[in-house]
Amino acid sequence: MWNSLLGIFHPAASTSALIWRLILAVAFSIALLVLLHRFLGPRGRRWLIAFVTFAGGLYLGLEYFLPVRGSVLWPTGMPNPNPDRAANILTPGIEPIGIMLSVVGAFTVGLGIYSLCQVHGRNVAQRRPGWHNSGAFFLAMSAMLVFGLWAHYLPDQDAPGGRLPWQESTYELLFGGIFMPLQAATFSLLAFYIASAAYRAFRIHTAEAALMMAAAFIVMLAQVPVGQWLTHGLPTTGPLAFFRLETLGDWIMSWLNTPAQRGIVFGVAVGGLAMSLRIWLSLERGTFFSEQG
């Protein structure tokens, strides 16, 4: 029963079976949405959200914490359908859930594109200031979409070997010639921003700030050959070797940075756990949705 239920998430045996599944899935989804919309008020909707959140969290939590066996499903003793993964009775559902989430995620891309078109379409239609930027958005999106799909699905079969068909080379130009350099150039801007931000923000207001600055200078110098050159006269062994900038930099990173990082990560992890619990038990409801209900 369980396995046949999970079977609907596996590839269909034939094209007709796939079409039937698609029709049934769409009909079921529409019927469910209509029913929910028709019979659930705002209060009912909140209860439904709380229930789905709790059930989802419970499933994934139990799957993680229940004991596992490699060859059989714990605790039923049934054969494990995927012996490559240690499993309990809930494990076989993990992959279908992952697929379902991916499908839902794929639908939201459509919503995202709708949002973009809504904002930029209005800019163009009403000729708002900077509307040509919105026009550039439509141009860029259509070009990537058309040439990307074209190059993927309709490659030029007759193109001589070694030469890219023109639609693919256009896509290469858009991707490798425009998109990638833009990405690299934007990342490079960080060098300029960090220079101006460091100059502006680093002021010795207190003794602690002075210590912090000393540590920053050592680490910055240890990170480049000119820093290593500054103390190259010091011996590489013995007590004075500690004062070579690269050794001092490594010491700061290992002995001062590491405990600080661990401390923050501990705090953040426990904070994340508490937040997860609040979401799972719908205790955070008041902040996301109105307090009633």
């Binding site: 923050i264 953040v268 426990v270 508490a274 619990l277 609040r278 205790l283 008041g286």
Partner: peptide, 30 residues
């Protein structure tokens, strides 16, 4: 807002007993 202060935000801003309690529990767990 630094580190786990981030996760204290909703409790701090709303002062709801439920959220404040979770914050205290989180400190004990830490």
């Amino acid at each position: 807002v630094i580190g786990d202060e981030y996760y204290a935000a909703s409790a701090y801003l709303t002062r709801e007993p439920t959220l404040t309690g979770s914050l205290i529990g989180q400190d004990i767990a830490k």
